[in-house]
Amino acid sequence: MITTERLRLRRLQLDDAPFILEQVNDPSWLEQIGDRGVHNLDDARGFLRDGPLASYSQHGFGLYLIEQAEDGAPVGLCGLLQRDWLDDVDVGYALMPAYRGRGYAREAVRAVIEHARQDLGRQRVAAFTSPGNVASIGVLESLGFRFQREVRLPGKDQQEDNLVKLFALS
């Protein structure tokens, strides 16, 4: 578990499927990250098994559930991803609407970067964001990430909407 003054970040488990169903169907997630085909609790459990839980087994890290420290309320997701086509780990995050604008994303990302460096020995961390996601770009830049280049995500067709901005923190 990763802790900050206001947050706890813990490994996801299958019991978190109801939250995952809500998170990945949030309109902002769908717009900024994309539809993951999670439309019921069975899909959410599959998302967990094939995504975060598999990543914990394979890499020792993955996406974590962000909870408020004071009451355990689920706030969103934040963690590290290892993509086959990228040498660096990248940090991903998303918050539920009620928790945006409180500094939670910055706090969670900062804690995950510290975890990557201190516990995993990863000095360089990447991050991706949609070109129009001004809030996310602001979070990354406030933490010292610098824009590297635009990249087209592998495995997707050549539509313009799969073009993302790559940031890095060294």
Rank of each mutant, 00 (worst) to 15 (best):
F61P: 01
R110E: 15
Y64T: 08
P52Y: 10
H39A: 01
D42H: 10
L80H: 01
G132C: 00
R149K: 10
L41I: 10
A126V: 00
F61G: 05
R100L: 08
D87L: 12
A111Y: 12
A69Q: 08
L153C: 08
Q158F: 15
V89A: 04
L81I: 11
S130F: 05
E160R: 06
P97D: 15
D157T: 14
C78V: 06
D42M: 13
R102T: 11
L140T: 09
Y56F: 08
V75Y: 03
Q159A: 14
E141C: 04
K156L: 11
L153G: 07
R124T: 03
V38N: 06
Q118L: 07
L81G: 01
Y56D: 04
P74V: 06
Y56G: 07
S55Y: 13
G37E: 13
Q148T: 08
R124A: 06
L48C: 10
L41C: 11
F47S: 13
L77E: 01
R152D: 15
G101Q: 02
A94E: 04
R124P: 00
A126M: 00
L63T: 04
F128G: 00
A111R: 10
Q118A: 05
H59M: 02
A98F: 11
K156A: 14
A111N: 11
D157W: 14
H39R: 11
A94R: 03
E67C: 13
P154Y: 08
R149V: 11
G51S: 01
L41M: 15
L65C: 09
R122G: 14
Y104Q: 03
H39F: 12
G101C: 03
L120K: 13
E107H: 12
E70Y: 05
S136T: 06
R83N: 05
Q68D: 13
D157R: 13
G72K: 02
F47E: 12
E160V: 13
R146E: 15
R122K: 15
R45Y: 14
G101V: 05
G132M: 02
Q58N: 15
